[in-house]
Lab assay of single mutants.
Amino acid sequence: EEDDHMEFCRVCKDGGELLCCDACPSSYHLHCLNPPLPEIPNGEWLCPRCTCP
């Protein structure tokens, strides 16, 4: 299965362990989110761009 998510964080543009949005190709480091997440959430996760009205 091919993964179309970005291979770098949308905020800092660095690679590493990234959290991928379930609705778009964006990826983020947990510490780059505002507010930062302490751990990878269970289940579906939507990035700030997808949850913003």
Rank of each mutant, 00 (worst) to 15 (best):
Glu1Val: 05
Glu2Phe: 15
Glu2Ile: 15
Asp3Arg: 14
Asp3Glu: 14
Asp4Trp: 11
Asp4Glu: 08
His5Asn: 14
His5Met: 06
His5Val: 03
His5Lys: 12
Met6Phe: 13
Met6Gln: 06
Glu7Met: 04
Phe8Asn: 12
Phe8Cys: 05
Cys9Met: 00
Cys9Ser: 01
Arg10Met: 08
Arg10Ile: 09
Val11Ala: 05
Val11Ser: 08
Cys12Tyr: 00
Cys12Met: 00
Lys13Ile: 02
Lys13Met: 07
Lys13Gln: 05
Asp14Trp: 06
Asp14Gln: 06
Gly15Met: 07
Gly15Leu: 07
Gly15Trp: 09
Gly15Arg: 14
Glu17Trp: 03
Glu17Asn: 09
Leu18Pro: 00
Leu18Ser: 01
Leu18Lys: 00
Leu18Met: 11
Leu18Tyr: 15
Leu19Gln: 07
Leu19Tyr: 14
Leu19Ser: 03
Leu19Val: 10
Cys20Ser: 11
Cys20Ile: 13
Cys20Gln: 12
Cys21Thr: 00
Cys21Pro: 03
Asp22Phe: 07
Asp22Glu: 13
Asp22Lys: 14
Asp22Leu: 10
Ala23Asn: 08
Cys24Pro: 01
Cys24Leu: 00
Cys24Asn: 00
Pro25Gln: 08
Ser26Ala: 13
Ser27Asp: 05
Tyr28Phe: 11
Tyr28Cys: 02
Tyr28Asn: 02
Tyr28Leu: 04
His29Gly: 01
His29Tyr: 02
His29Val: 00
Leu30Trp: 06
Leu30Asp: 11
Leu30His: 12
His31Asn: 14
His31Lys: 10
His31Glu: 13
His31Gln: 04
Cys32Ala: 01
Cys32His: 04
Leu33Asp: 04
Leu33Thr: 06
Asn34Met: 06
Asn34Thr: 06
Asn34Lys: 13
Asn34Glu: 10
Pro36Arg: 10
Pro36Met: 10
Leu37Arg: 11
Leu37Met: 05
Pro38Tyr: 15
Pro38Val: 00
Glu39Thr: 06
Glu39Pro: 14
Glu39Gly: 08
Glu39Val: 12
Glu39Asp: 06
Ile40His: 07
Ile40Cys: 14
Ile40Val: 10
Ile40Asn: 13
Ile40Pro: 13
Pro41Ser: 13
Pro41Asp: 15
Pro41Ile: 07
Pro41Met: 05
Pro41Arg: 11
Asn42Phe: 05
Asn42Glu: 11
Asn42Lys: 07
Asn42Tyr: 13
Gly43Arg: 09
Glu44Tyr: 06
Trp45Lys: 03
Leu46Ile: 14
Leu46Arg: 10
Leu46Phe: 14
Cys47Gln: 06
Pro48Met: 04
Arg49Asn: 12
Arg49His: 06
Arg49Ile: 05
Cys50Asp: 04
Thr51Gly: 10
Thr51Cys: 14
Thr51Ile: 14
Thr51Asn: 12
Pro53Lys: 04
